[in-house]
Design a protein around this nucleic acid. Structure first.
Length: 551
RNA sequence: GGCCCGGUGGUCAAGAGGCCUAAGACACCGCCCUUUCACGGCGGUAACACGAGUUCGAAUCUCGUCCGGGUCACCA
Protein backbone atom coordinates (compact mmCIF):
# COMPACT_ATOMS: atom_id res chain seq x y z
CA UNK A 1 0.00 0.00 0.00
CA UNK A 2 1.41 3.36 -0.94
CA UNK A 3 2.07 5.99 1.66
CA UNK A 4 -0.78 8.13 0.39
CA UNK A 5 -3.30 5.37 0.85
CA UNK A 6 -1.99 4.58 4.28
CA UNK A 7 -2.03 8.24 5.13
CA UNK A 8 -5.63 8.59 4.07
CA UNK A 9 -6.66 5.74 6.33
CA UNK A 10 -4.57 7.03 9.17
CA UNK A 11 -6.08 10.50 9.00
CA UNK A 12 -9.68 9.65 8.25
CA UNK A 13 -10.14 6.05 9.39
CA UNK A 14 -13.90 6.33 9.83
CA UNK A 15 -14.56 7.32 6.22
CA UNK A 16 -15.55 4.27 4.22
CA UNK A 17 -17.20 5.81 1.21
CA UNK A 18 -15.67 7.22 -1.94
CA UNK A 19 -16.77 10.22 -3.96
CA UNK A 20 -18.56 7.93 -6.42
CA UNK A 21 -21.15 7.29 -3.78
CA UNK A 22 -22.11 10.93 -3.56
CA UNK A 23 -21.80 11.54 -7.25
CA UNK A 24 -24.48 8.92 -7.73
CA UNK A 25 -26.55 10.15 -4.79
CA UNK A 26 -26.97 13.64 -6.19
CA UNK A 27 -27.89 13.32 -9.85
CA UNK A 28 -27.88 16.04 -12.46
CA UNK A 29 -30.95 18.22 -12.37
CA UNK A 30 -33.30 17.99 -15.27
CA UNK A 31 -34.11 21.55 -16.08
CA UNK A 32 -34.80 23.32 -19.31
CA UNK A 33 -31.94 24.61 -21.37
CA UNK A 34 -30.45 27.75 -19.92
CA UNK A 35 -32.09 27.41 -16.53
CA UNK A 36 -29.92 28.86 -13.82
CA UNK A 37 -29.45 27.11 -10.52
CA UNK A 38 -28.52 29.74 -7.98
CA UNK A 39 -28.18 29.93 -4.28
CA UNK A 40 -27.51 32.02 -1.30
CA UNK A 41 -25.35 30.55 1.40
CA UNK A 42 -25.51 32.62 4.53
CA UNK A 43 -23.79 31.83 7.75
CA UNK A 44 -26.07 32.10 10.74
CA UNK A 45 -24.06 34.71 12.57
CA UNK A 46 -26.74 37.27 13.27
CA UNK A 47 -29.55 39.09 11.60
CA UNK A 48 -30.34 39.23 7.95
CA UNK A 49 -27.98 41.76 6.45
CA UNK A 50 -29.08 44.12 3.72
CA UNK A 51 -26.26 42.74 1.57
CA UNK A 52 -27.49 39.19 2.02
CA UNK A 53 -30.98 40.30 1.08
CA UNK A 54 -29.55 42.00 -1.97
CA UNK A 55 -27.57 39.01 -3.22
CA UNK A 56 -30.48 36.74 -2.41
CA UNK A 57 -32.74 38.90 -4.51
CA UNK A 58 -30.31 38.86 -7.40
CA UNK A 59 -29.93 35.10 -7.20
CA UNK A 60 -33.65 34.68 -6.92
CA UNK A 61 -34.53 36.85 -9.87
CA UNK A 62 -31.80 35.27 -11.99
CA UNK A 63 -33.28 31.84 -11.30
CA UNK A 64 -36.82 33.03 -11.86
CA UNK A 65 -35.97 34.76 -15.12
CA UNK A 66 -34.48 31.56 -16.48
CA UNK A 67 -37.04 29.20 -14.96
CA UNK A 68 -34.36 27.77 -12.76
CA UNK A 69 -33.96 26.94 -9.11
CA UNK A 70 -32.95 29.11 -6.21
CA UNK A 71 -31.92 27.36 -3.04
CA UNK A 72 -30.52 28.22 0.35
CA UNK A 73 -27.66 26.54 2.12
CA UNK A 74 -26.55 27.26 5.62
CA UNK A 75 -22.83 27.73 5.98
CA UNK A 76 -22.43 27.01 9.63
CA UNK A 77 -18.87 25.80 9.58
CA UNK A 78 -17.71 28.32 12.13
CA UNK A 79 -19.18 27.35 15.45
CA UNK A 80 -17.55 30.27 17.19
CA UNK A 81 -19.47 32.88 15.27
CA UNK A 82 -22.79 31.16 15.19
CA UNK A 83 -25.67 32.72 17.09
CA UNK A 84 -28.81 31.22 18.51
CA UNK A 85 -31.70 31.44 16.09
CA UNK A 86 -29.37 32.51 13.31
CA UNK A 87 -30.99 30.34 10.69
CA UNK A 88 -34.48 31.58 11.56
CA UNK A 89 -33.32 35.19 11.50
CA UNK A 90 -32.06 34.86 7.99
CA UNK A 91 -34.46 32.49 6.31
CA UNK A 92 -37.57 33.94 7.91
CA UNK A 93 -36.19 37.35 7.01
CA UNK A 94 -35.96 36.35 3.38
CA UNK A 95 -39.51 35.06 3.55
CA UNK A 96 -40.65 38.29 5.05
CA UNK A 97 -39.29 40.11 2.05
CA UNK A 98 -41.08 37.78 -0.26
CA UNK A 99 -38.00 35.98 -1.54
CA UNK A 100 -39.36 32.58 -2.36
CA UNK A 101 -37.07 29.65 -1.82
CA UNK A 102 -37.36 26.58 -4.01
CA UNK A 103 -35.04 24.35 -2.12
CA UNK A 104 -32.88 24.11 0.97
CA UNK A 105 -34.02 25.87 4.09
CA UNK A 106 -37.42 27.26 3.24
CA UNK A 107 -38.09 28.38 6.80
CA UNK A 108 -36.14 28.46 10.00
CA UNK A 109 -36.73 24.77 10.56
CA UNK A 110 -37.96 23.19 7.39
CA UNK A 111 -35.72 21.85 4.67
CA UNK A 112 -36.77 20.84 1.18
CA UNK A 113 -35.06 19.14 -1.73
CA UNK A 114 -33.06 16.04 -2.55
CA UNK A 115 -29.61 17.58 -2.57
CA UNK A 116 -29.41 18.02 1.17
CA UNK A 117 -28.62 18.26 3.90
CA UNK A 118 -28.51 21.97 3.20
CA UNK A 119 -26.52 22.71 6.27
CA UNK A 120 -22.78 22.27 6.19
CA UNK A 121 -22.41 21.13 9.76
CA UNK A 122 -24.39 18.06 8.78
CA UNK A 123 -22.29 17.33 5.73
CA UNK A 124 -19.02 16.58 7.46
CA UNK A 125 -18.87 13.06 6.17
CA UNK A 126 -19.29 14.21 2.60
CA UNK A 127 -16.44 16.68 2.80
CA UNK A 128 -14.25 14.19 4.53
CA UNK A 129 -14.90 11.62 1.87
CA UNK A 130 -13.63 13.97 -0.79
CA UNK A 131 -10.69 15.02 1.34
CA UNK A 132 -9.75 11.42 1.90
CA UNK A 133 -9.79 10.93 -1.83
CA UNK A 134 -7.57 13.95 -2.27
CA UNK A 135 -5.11 12.59 0.28
CA UNK A 136 -5.01 9.29 -1.55
CA UNK A 137 -4.19 11.11 -4.73
CA UNK A 138 -1.50 13.17 -3.07
CA UNK A 139 -3.33 16.49 -3.28
CA UNK A 140 -3.76 16.98 0.42
CA UNK A 141 -1.77 16.49 3.57
CA UNK A 142 -2.01 17.04 7.31
CA UNK A 143 -0.50 20.11 8.91
CA UNK A 144 0.37 20.24 12.58
CA UNK A 145 1.54 23.84 12.72
CA UNK A 146 0.25 25.81 15.66
CA UNK A 147 -1.09 29.32 15.43
CA UNK A 148 2.14 30.55 16.98
CA UNK A 149 4.29 28.76 14.44
CA UNK A 150 2.21 30.13 11.62
CA UNK A 151 2.53 33.59 13.05
CA UNK A 152 6.27 33.20 13.35
CA UNK A 153 6.54 32.16 9.73
CA UNK A 154 4.50 35.11 8.75
CA UNK A 155 6.68 37.48 10.72
CA UNK A 156 9.75 36.04 9.10
CA UNK A 157 8.24 36.46 5.64
CA UNK A 158 7.27 40.02 6.33
CA UNK A 159 10.72 40.80 7.60
CA UNK A 160 12.32 39.31 4.53
CA UNK A 161 9.76 41.03 2.34
CA UNK A 162 8.45 37.82 0.96
CA UNK A 163 4.83 37.20 0.10
CA UNK A 164 3.21 35.84 3.22
CA UNK A 165 1.33 32.59 3.39
CA UNK A 166 1.66 28.85 3.54
CA UNK A 167 3.13 28.15 0.16
CA UNK A 168 6.09 26.48 -1.48
CA UNK A 169 9.05 26.03 0.80
CA UNK A 170 7.22 27.81 3.59
CA UNK A 171 4.72 25.00 3.77
CA UNK A 172 6.46 23.33 6.66
CA UNK A 173 4.32 20.23 6.92
CA UNK A 174 4.21 19.55 3.23
CA UNK A 175 7.19 17.27 3.26
CA UNK A 176 6.50 15.35 6.43
CA UNK A 177 7.12 11.63 5.99
CA UNK A 178 4.49 9.08 6.78
CA UNK A 179 6.35 8.04 9.91
CA UNK A 180 6.67 11.59 11.16
CA UNK A 181 2.96 12.08 10.66
CA UNK A 182 2.16 8.79 12.30
CA UNK A 183 4.06 9.64 15.43
CA UNK A 184 2.38 13.05 15.69
CA UNK A 185 -1.01 11.47 15.28
CA UNK A 186 -0.19 8.87 17.87
CA UNK A 187 0.86 11.67 20.18
CA UNK A 188 -2.56 13.19 19.73
CA UNK A 189 -1.37 16.41 18.14
CA UNK A 190 -4.27 18.19 16.43
CA UNK A 191 -4.01 18.81 12.73
CA UNK A 192 -5.71 20.37 9.77
CA UNK A 193 -5.77 19.08 6.22
CA UNK A 194 -4.23 21.36 3.65
CA UNK A 195 -4.34 21.31 -0.09
CA UNK A 196 -1.04 20.45 -1.70
CA UNK A 197 -1.34 23.21 -4.21
CA UNK A 198 0.08 22.44 -7.63
CA UNK A 199 -0.10 26.11 -8.50
CA UNK A 200 2.63 28.52 -9.40
CA UNK A 201 2.44 32.16 -8.58
CA UNK A 202 4.08 33.01 -11.88
CA UNK A 203 1.19 31.58 -13.84
CA UNK A 204 -1.97 33.46 -14.52
CA UNK A 205 -5.49 32.19 -14.25
CA UNK A 206 -8.22 33.88 -16.20
CA UNK A 207 -11.92 33.63 -15.72
CA UNK A 208 -14.89 35.46 -17.08
CA UNK A 209 -16.94 37.08 -14.37
CA UNK A 210 -20.52 37.57 -15.50
CA UNK A 211 -20.62 40.99 -13.91
CA UNK A 212 -17.06 42.24 -13.82
CA UNK A 213 -15.87 40.76 -17.05
CA UNK A 214 -12.54 39.11 -17.68
CA UNK A 215 -10.36 38.88 -14.61
CA UNK A 216 -6.79 37.71 -14.58
CA UNK A 217 -5.00 36.77 -11.40
CA UNK A 218 -1.93 34.88 -10.28
CA UNK A 219 -2.53 31.18 -9.86
CA UNK A 220 -3.04 29.98 -6.33
CA UNK A 221 0.00 28.37 -4.79
CA UNK A 222 -1.17 28.55 -1.23
CA UNK A 223 -1.64 25.31 0.66
CA UNK A 224 -4.82 26.60 2.19
CA UNK A 225 -6.79 24.67 4.75
CA UNK A 226 -9.41 22.27 3.48
CA UNK A 227 -10.48 20.70 6.74
CA UNK A 228 -10.13 22.44 10.07
CA UNK A 229 -8.90 20.56 13.10
CA UNK A 230 -12.47 19.79 14.08
CA UNK A 231 -12.99 18.01 10.79
CA UNK A 232 -15.24 20.74 9.41
CA UNK A 233 -14.27 22.30 6.10
CA UNK A 234 -13.36 25.89 5.39
CA UNK A 235 -15.58 27.95 3.15
CA UNK A 236 -13.48 27.31 0.06
CA UNK A 237 -13.68 23.58 0.25
CA UNK A 238 -17.31 23.42 1.26
CA UNK A 239 -18.17 25.76 -1.60
CA UNK A 240 -16.51 23.54 -4.18
CA UNK A 241 -18.07 20.34 -2.89
CA UNK A 242 -21.53 21.70 -2.26
CA UNK A 243 -21.97 23.70 -5.39
CA UNK A 244 -20.81 20.75 -7.38
CA UNK A 245 -23.04 18.23 -5.64
CA UNK A 246 -26.00 20.58 -5.60
CA UNK A 247 -25.40 21.41 -9.25
CA UNK A 248 -25.26 25.13 -8.90
CA UNK A 249 -24.81 26.65 -12.32
CA UNK A 250 -24.26 30.25 -11.25
CA UNK A 251 -22.40 31.27 -8.16
CA UNK A 252 -23.47 34.82 -7.45
CA UNK A 253 -22.02 36.24 -4.32
CA UNK A 254 -20.48 39.34 -2.82
CA UNK A 255 -17.43 40.63 -4.62
CA UNK A 256 -15.26 40.20 -1.55
CA UNK A 257 -14.89 36.66 -2.91
CA UNK A 258 -13.15 37.64 -6.09
CA UNK A 259 -9.73 37.31 -4.62
CA UNK A 260 -10.50 33.72 -3.64
CA UNK A 261 -11.50 32.66 -7.11
CA UNK A 262 -8.06 31.25 -7.98
CA UNK A 263 -8.38 28.95 -4.98
CA UNK A 264 -11.83 27.87 -6.07
CA UNK A 265 -10.82 27.35 -9.66
CA UNK A 266 -7.94 25.19 -8.57
CA UNK A 267 -10.15 23.16 -6.29
CA UNK A 268 -12.71 22.54 -8.99
CA UNK A 269 -10.00 21.41 -11.33
CA UNK A 270 -8.29 19.09 -8.89
CA UNK A 271 -11.57 17.59 -7.84
CA UNK A 272 -12.51 17.11 -11.46
CA UNK A 273 -15.64 19.23 -11.15
CA UNK A 274 -17.22 21.35 -13.79
CA UNK A 275 -16.63 24.99 -12.96
CA UNK A 276 -19.79 27.02 -12.37
CA UNK A 277 -20.23 30.52 -13.73
CA UNK A 278 -19.25 33.22 -11.34
CA UNK A 279 -20.92 36.57 -10.88
CA UNK A 280 -19.60 38.81 -8.16
CA UNK A 281 -21.97 41.48 -7.04
CA UNK A 282 -20.79 44.76 -5.64
CA UNK A 283 -21.72 45.64 -2.12
CA UNK A 284 -24.13 48.35 -1.10
CA UNK A 285 -22.12 51.27 0.18
CA UNK A 286 -22.76 54.06 2.55
CA UNK A 287 -21.37 57.53 2.86
CA UNK A 288 -19.49 57.97 6.08
CA UNK A 289 -17.80 61.31 6.71
CA UNK A 290 -17.54 61.89 3.02
CA UNK A 291 -16.03 58.49 2.36
CA UNK A 292 -17.74 55.66 0.57
CA UNK A 293 -17.65 52.35 2.36
CA UNK A 294 -19.46 49.07 2.56
CA UNK A 295 -22.44 49.08 4.91
CA UNK A 296 -21.18 47.51 8.04
CA UNK A 297 -23.01 45.27 10.42
CA UNK A 298 -21.40 46.83 13.43
CA UNK A 299 -21.60 50.51 12.63
CA UNK A 300 -24.77 50.91 10.62
CA UNK A 301 -28.25 50.25 11.94
CA UNK A 302 -29.54 49.89 8.40
CA UNK A 303 -27.23 46.92 7.85
CA UNK A 304 -29.77 44.75 9.62
CA UNK A 305 -32.78 44.49 7.43
CA UNK A 306 -34.94 44.60 10.51
CA UNK A 307 -34.19 48.30 10.69
CA UNK A 308 -36.29 48.93 7.60
CA UNK A 309 -39.16 46.93 8.95
CA UNK A 310 -39.13 48.89 12.18
CA UNK A 311 -39.00 52.13 10.28
CA UNK A 312 -42.16 50.96 8.63
CA UNK A 313 -40.92 50.41 5.12
CA UNK A 314 -43.04 47.88 3.37
CA UNK A 315 -41.02 44.82 2.43
CA UNK A 316 -41.93 45.18 -1.21
CA UNK A 317 -40.68 48.76 -1.26
CA UNK A 318 -37.29 47.68 -0.02
CA UNK A 319 -37.18 44.91 -2.58
CA UNK A 320 -38.18 47.20 -5.42
CA UNK A 321 -35.56 49.69 -4.36
CA UNK A 322 -32.96 46.96 -4.30
CA UNK A 323 -34.08 45.96 -7.77
CA UNK A 324 -33.41 49.46 -9.04
CA UNK A 325 -29.88 49.12 -7.76
CA UNK A 326 -29.49 45.59 -9.05
CA UNK A 327 -30.53 46.22 -12.63
CA UNK A 328 -30.14 49.50 -14.43
CA UNK A 329 -33.10 48.71 -16.65
CA UNK A 330 -35.47 47.83 -13.86
CA UNK A 331 -36.95 51.30 -13.62
CA UNK A 332 -37.79 51.21 -17.31
CA UNK A 333 -39.60 47.95 -16.73
CA UNK A 334 -41.42 49.43 -13.78
CA UNK A 335 -42.57 52.47 -15.73
CA UNK A 336 -43.75 50.35 -18.61
CA UNK A 337 -45.48 47.84 -16.34
CA UNK A 338 -46.65 49.63 -13.22
CA UNK A 339 -48.79 46.75 -12.10
CA UNK A 340 -46.67 43.73 -12.85
CA UNK A 341 -44.88 42.03 -10.00
CA UNK A 342 -41.15 42.57 -10.11
CA UNK A 343 -40.70 38.85 -10.51
CA UNK A 344 -41.80 39.17 -14.11
CA UNK A 345 -38.87 41.41 -14.87
CA UNK A 346 -36.43 39.77 -17.25
CA UNK A 347 -33.22 40.02 -15.35
CA UNK A 348 -29.97 40.28 -17.21
CA UNK A 349 -26.64 40.08 -15.39
CA UNK A 350 -25.19 42.47 -17.93
CA UNK A 351 -27.35 45.21 -16.50
CA UNK A 352 -25.77 44.92 -13.12
CA UNK A 353 -23.55 47.66 -11.87
CA UNK A 354 -19.87 46.88 -11.70
CA UNK A 355 -19.20 49.23 -8.84
CA UNK A 356 -21.00 49.45 -5.53
CA UNK A 357 -24.00 51.71 -5.21
CA UNK A 358 -24.36 54.17 -2.40
CA UNK A 359 -27.44 53.51 -0.38
CA UNK A 360 -29.90 56.30 -1.18
CA UNK A 361 -32.68 56.77 1.29
CA UNK A 362 -34.35 59.44 -0.83
CA UNK A 363 -34.73 56.99 -3.62
CA UNK A 364 -36.07 54.33 -1.29
CA UNK A 365 -38.59 56.84 0.00
CA UNK A 366 -39.63 57.70 -3.51
CA UNK A 367 -39.99 54.10 -4.60
CA UNK A 368 -41.95 53.41 -1.48
CA UNK A 369 -44.33 56.35 -1.96
CA UNK A 370 -45.11 55.22 -5.44
CA UNK A 371 -45.82 51.70 -4.37
CA UNK A 372 -48.00 52.73 -1.48
CA UNK A 373 -49.91 55.15 -3.65
CA UNK A 374 -51.01 52.22 -5.76
CA UNK A 375 -52.34 50.25 -2.83
CA UNK A 376 -56.01 50.27 -1.93
CA UNK A 377 -57.17 52.03 1.21
CA UNK A 378 -57.96 48.68 2.66
CA UNK A 379 -54.50 47.31 2.04
CA UNK A 380 -52.83 50.39 3.46
CA UNK A 381 -55.04 50.24 6.49
CA UNK A 382 -54.26 46.58 7.06
CA UNK A 383 -50.55 47.05 6.62
CA UNK A 384 -50.38 49.98 8.97
CA UNK A 385 -52.36 48.09 11.55
CA UNK A 386 -50.04 45.12 11.25
CA UNK A 387 -47.02 47.35 11.60
CA UNK A 388 -48.43 49.16 14.61
CA UNK A 389 -49.27 45.88 16.28
CA UNK A 390 -45.60 45.08 16.29
CA UNK A 391 -44.02 48.47 16.86
CA UNK A 392 -46.50 50.96 18.30
CA UNK A 393 -49.08 49.51 20.64
CA UNK A 394 -50.67 52.84 21.50
CA UNK A 395 -51.36 53.48 17.85
CA UNK A 396 -52.44 49.90 17.31
CA UNK A 397 -55.13 50.13 19.96
CA UNK A 398 -56.59 53.19 18.30
CA UNK A 399 -56.51 51.58 14.89
CA UNK A 400 -58.38 48.44 15.91
CA UNK A 401 -61.00 50.21 17.98
CA UNK A 402 -63.09 50.76 14.88
CA UNK A 403 -61.64 49.11 11.84
CA UNK A 404 -64.08 50.53 9.35
CA UNK A 405 -63.19 53.99 10.64
CA UNK A 406 -59.49 53.19 10.22
CA UNK A 407 -60.10 51.95 6.74
CA UNK A 408 -62.04 55.09 5.88
CA UNK A 409 -59.16 57.25 7.07
CA UNK A 410 -56.66 55.57 4.84
CA UNK A 411 -59.01 55.54 1.90
CA UNK A 412 -59.13 59.31 1.62
CA UNK A 413 -57.69 60.43 -1.69
CA UNK A 414 -56.78 56.87 -2.48
CA UNK A 415 -58.21 54.38 -4.99
CA UNK A 416 -58.46 57.21 -7.51
CA UNK A 417 -56.68 58.43 -10.61
CA UNK A 418 -54.26 60.67 -8.76
CA UNK A 419 -53.73 59.03 -5.41
CA UNK A 420 -51.81 60.87 -2.77
CA UNK A 421 -48.18 60.08 -2.39
CA UNK A 422 -47.46 61.27 1.05
CA UNK A 423 -46.93 58.12 3.00
CA UNK A 424 -43.59 56.48 2.41
CA UNK A 425 -43.35 54.39 5.53
CA UNK A 426 -45.80 53.23 8.14
CA UNK A 427 -44.02 55.01 10.90
CA UNK A 428 -45.11 58.31 9.39
CA UNK A 429 -48.76 57.35 9.42
CA UNK A 430 -49.40 58.07 13.06
CA UNK A 431 -48.60 61.72 12.76
CA UNK A 432 -50.23 61.90 9.39
CA UNK A 433 -53.62 60.84 10.73
CA UNK A 434 -53.32 62.01 14.32
CA UNK A 435 -56.25 64.43 14.10
CA UNK A 436 -58.62 61.54 13.50
CA UNK A 437 -58.08 60.42 17.05
CA UNK A 438 -58.84 62.61 20.05
CA UNK A 439 -56.09 60.78 21.91
CA UNK A 440 -53.51 62.03 19.41
CA UNK A 441 -55.10 65.32 18.43
CA UNK A 442 -52.65 68.14 19.11
CA UNK A 443 -54.01 71.20 17.33
CA UNK A 444 -52.12 74.30 16.35
CA UNK A 445 -54.70 77.02 15.94
CA UNK A 446 -52.34 79.65 14.59
CA UNK A 447 -54.03 81.47 11.74
CA UNK A 448 -52.34 82.62 8.55
CA UNK A 449 -51.21 86.26 8.78
CA UNK A 450 -53.89 87.60 6.48
CA UNK A 451 -56.75 86.40 8.68
CA UNK A 452 -58.01 87.94 11.89
CA UNK A 453 -59.37 85.86 14.77
CA UNK A 454 -62.61 87.79 14.61
CA UNK A 455 -63.24 87.00 10.96
CA UNK A 456 -62.23 83.42 11.47
CA UNK A 457 -64.62 82.90 14.34
CA UNK A 458 -67.45 84.69 12.67
CA UNK A 459 -67.00 82.41 9.71
CA UNK A 460 -66.85 79.28 11.82
CA UNK A 461 -69.98 80.22 13.71
CA UNK A 462 -71.83 80.82 10.48
CA UNK A 463 -70.45 77.65 8.98
CA UNK A 464 -71.62 75.37 11.74
CA UNK A 465 -75.16 76.43 10.99
CA UNK A 466 -75.04 75.51 7.34
CA UNK A 467 -72.78 72.46 7.41
CA UNK A 468 -74.45 69.48 5.84
CA UNK A 469 -72.72 66.18 6.21
CA UNK A 470 -74.23 64.70 3.11
CA UNK A 471 -72.91 67.37 0.77
CA UNK A 472 -70.64 66.14 -1.95
CA UNK A 473 -67.30 67.77 -2.49
CA UNK A 474 -68.68 70.49 -4.73
CA UNK A 475 -71.65 71.33 -2.58
CA UNK A 476 -69.35 71.34 0.40
CA UNK A 477 -67.24 74.08 -1.08
CA UNK A 478 -70.31 75.96 -2.27
CA UNK A 479 -71.35 76.39 1.36
CA UNK A 480 -68.12 78.14 2.11
CA UNK A 481 -68.45 80.32 -0.94
CA UNK A 482 -71.93 81.32 0.00
CA UNK A 483 -70.70 82.65 3.30
CA UNK A 484 -68.01 84.78 1.69
CA UNK A 485 -69.84 87.96 0.65
CA UNK A 486 -71.32 88.61 4.07
CA UNK A 487 -67.85 88.36 5.61
CA UNK A 488 -66.18 90.55 3.03
CA UNK A 489 -64.41 87.67 1.30
CA UNK A 490 -64.39 86.83 -2.39
CA UNK A 491 -66.25 83.68 -3.35
CA UNK A 492 -64.01 83.24 -6.36
CA UNK A 493 -60.27 83.22 -6.16
CA UNK A 494 -60.08 84.94 -9.53
CA UNK A 495 -62.18 87.82 -8.30
CA UNK A 496 -59.91 88.20 -5.34
CA UNK A 497 -56.76 88.12 -7.42
CA UNK A 498 -58.19 90.70 -9.78
CA UNK A 499 -58.86 93.11 -6.96
CA UNK A 500 -57.16 92.03 -3.75
CA UNK A 501 -57.79 95.34 -2.09
CA UNK A 502 -61.53 94.96 -2.29
CA UNK A 503 -61.62 91.80 -0.15
CA UNK A 504 -60.30 90.49 3.11
CA UNK A 505 -59.47 87.25 1.39
CA UNK A 506 -61.14 84.51 -0.60
CA UNK A 507 -63.00 81.27 -0.14
CA UNK A 508 -59.77 79.36 0.00
CA UNK A 509 -58.69 81.33 3.04
CA UNK A 510 -61.87 80.44 4.81
CA UNK A 511 -61.47 76.78 3.97
CA UNK A 512 -58.09 77.05 5.61
CA UNK A 513 -59.76 78.37 8.73
CA UNK A 514 -62.11 75.43 8.68
CA UNK A 515 -59.21 73.06 8.14
CA UNK A 516 -57.39 74.50 11.10
CA UNK A 517 -60.47 74.26 13.26
CA UNK A 518 -61.24 70.68 12.37
CA UNK A 519 -57.78 69.17 12.04
CA UNK A 520 -55.63 71.58 13.94
CA UNK A 521 -53.25 71.99 11.04
CA UNK A 522 -52.91 73.90 7.79
CA UNK A 523 -52.09 71.05 5.44
CA UNK A 524 -54.21 67.96 5.05
CA UNK A 525 -55.76 65.82 2.36
CA UNK A 526 -59.19 66.73 1.10
CA UNK A 527 -61.09 68.41 3.95
CA UNK A 528 -64.54 67.46 2.79
CA UNK A 529 -63.61 63.77 2.94
CA UNK A 530 -61.95 64.21 6.28
CA UNK A 531 -65.05 65.78 7.73
CA UNK A 532 -67.19 62.96 6.47
CA UNK A 533 -64.98 60.40 8.10
CA UNK A 534 -64.91 62.35 11.31
CA UNK A 535 -68.69 62.73 11.35
CA UNK A 536 -70.81 65.79 11.94
CA UNK A 537 -70.82 65.63 15.73
CA UNK A 538 -67.09 65.46 15.96
CA UNK A 539 -66.66 68.26 13.43
CA UNK A 540 -69.01 70.57 15.24
CA UNK A 541 -67.31 69.77 18.51
CA UNK A 542 -63.92 70.55 17.01
CA UNK A 543 -65.14 73.79 15.50
CA UNK A 544 -66.63 74.98 18.75
CA UNK A 545 -63.48 74.10 20.58
CA UNK A 546 -61.44 75.97 17.99
CA UNK A 547 -63.51 79.09 18.33
CA UNK A 548 -62.64 79.22 22.02
CA UNK A 549 -58.94 79.02 21.28
CA UNK A 550 -58.84 81.36 18.36
CA UNK A 551 -60.73 84.18 20.05
C1' G B 1 2.61 46.86 0.93
C1' G B 2 1.31 42.57 -2.87
C1' C B 3 -2.81 41.07 -5.83
C1' C B 4 -7.58 42.33 -7.88
C1' C B 5 -11.76 45.66 -9.15
C1' G B 6 -13.71 50.38 -10.03
C1' G B 7 -13.93 56.04 -11.25
C1' U B 8 -20.07 59.92 -16.17
C1' G B 9 -24.03 65.67 -12.19
C1' G B 10 -25.12 65.54 -4.83
C1' U B 11 -27.08 59.98 -5.54
C1' C B 12 -28.47 55.74 -8.98
C1' A B 13 -27.31 55.47 -13.83
C1' A B 14 -27.75 55.32 -19.96
C1' G B 15 -23.56 55.10 -23.02
C1' A B 16 -20.03 49.15 -26.71
C1' G B 17 -15.19 55.14 -31.61
C1' G B 18 -18.94 59.52 -35.05
C1' C B 19 -26.24 59.17 -33.43
C1' C B 20 -23.13 63.14 -27.28
C1' U B 21 -24.42 70.26 -27.98
C1' A B 22 -23.78 63.36 -22.84
C1' A B 23 -30.48 60.17 -21.72
C1' G B 24 -33.57 59.06 -17.67
C1' A B 25 -34.74 58.62 -12.28
C1' C B 26 -34.07 60.58 -7.13
C1' A B 27 -32.81 65.06 -4.58
C1' C B 28 -32.71 70.46 -5.15
C1' C B 29 -34.67 75.23 -7.39
C1' G B 30 -38.44 77.96 -10.36
C1' C B 31 -43.14 78.31 -12.88
C1' C B 32 -48.12 76.31 -13.92
C1' C B 33 -52.43 73.67 -12.01
C1' U B 34 -54.92 74.27 -7.33
C1' U B 35 -59.60 75.77 -1.41
C1' U B 36 -54.27 73.82 1.88
C1' C B 37 -50.82 69.98 1.31
C1' A B 38 -49.72 66.26 -1.89
C1' C B 39 -50.33 64.64 -7.04
C1' G B 40 -49.62 66.10 -11.99
C1' G B 41 -47.44 69.28 -15.99
C1' C B 42 -43.45 72.42 -17.74
C1' G B 43 -38.61 74.30 -17.10
C1' G B 44 -33.74 74.92 -14.54
C1' U B 45 -28.83 74.14 -11.83
C1' A B 46 -25.40 70.18 -12.21
C1' A B 47 -21.05 65.19 -14.78
C1' C B 48 -17.26 62.06 -18.58
C1' A B 49 -10.98 62.16 -12.15
C1' C B 50 -6.20 63.87 -14.46
C1' G B 51 -2.21 63.42 -18.18
C1' A B 52 -0.26 61.25 -22.41
C1' G B 53 -1.08 58.20 -26.65
C1' U B 54 -3.96 55.44 -30.84
C1' U B 55 -7.44 57.62 -34.51
C1' C B 56 -9.81 61.97 -39.47
C1' G B 57 -12.69 61.53 -34.81
C1' A B 58 -12.33 59.24 -27.71
C1' A B 59 -16.95 59.33 -22.19
C1' U B 60 -16.02 54.85 -25.14
C1' C B 61 -9.50 51.75 -26.97
C1' U B 62 -4.10 51.75 -24.65
C1' C B 63 -0.66 53.38 -20.99
C1' G B 64 0.63 56.25 -16.70
C1' U B 65 -0.92 59.15 -12.39
C1' C B 66 -4.32 60.12 -8.70
C1' C B 67 -8.48 58.74 -5.91
C1' G B 68 -12.01 55.07 -4.01
C1' G B 69 -13.17 49.89 -2.86
C1' G B 70 -12.04 44.66 -1.94
C1' U B 71 -8.64 40.93 -0.30
C1' C B 72 -4.35 38.82 1.82
C1' A B 73 -7.23 33.31 8.57
C1' C B 74 -8.17 26.53 11.25
C1' C B 75 -14.17 33.79 9.25
C1' A B 76 -17.57 33.41 5.92
Amino acid sequence: MSDNLKLADLLLPHIDKTPDYYEALYPERSLKEGAKVTRVAPSPTGYLHIGTLFTSLVNRIAATSSEGIFFTRIEDTDKKREVEGGIENIIDGLNRFGITIDEGFVSGKEEKGIYGPYQQSRRAEIYQTYVKDLIRKGFAYPCFCTAEELEATRAEQEKANIRTGYHGEWAACRSLTFDEIKSKIDAGIPFVIRLKSPGNEENKVVYEDLIKGKIEMPENDEDFVLLKSDGIPTYHFAHAIDDHLMHTTHVMRGDEWISSVPKHLQLFRILGFKVPKFAHVSPIMKLDDGAKRKISKRKDPEAAVHFFIEEGFDAIAVVEYLMTIAASDFEDFRRANPDKPYTEFKFNLKKMSVSGALFDENKLLDVSKNIISRMSGETVSEKITAWAKEFDTEFYRLLIKDQSYTKAIFSIDRDCAKPRKDIAKWKEAKDYVSYFFDELFAPDYTLPDNLTPADACEFLKAYVKVYNESDDKQQWFERIKELCPALGFASETKAYKAAPASYKGHAGDLSTVLRIAVTGRRNTPDLCSIMKVLGKDKCVERIEEAIKHIL
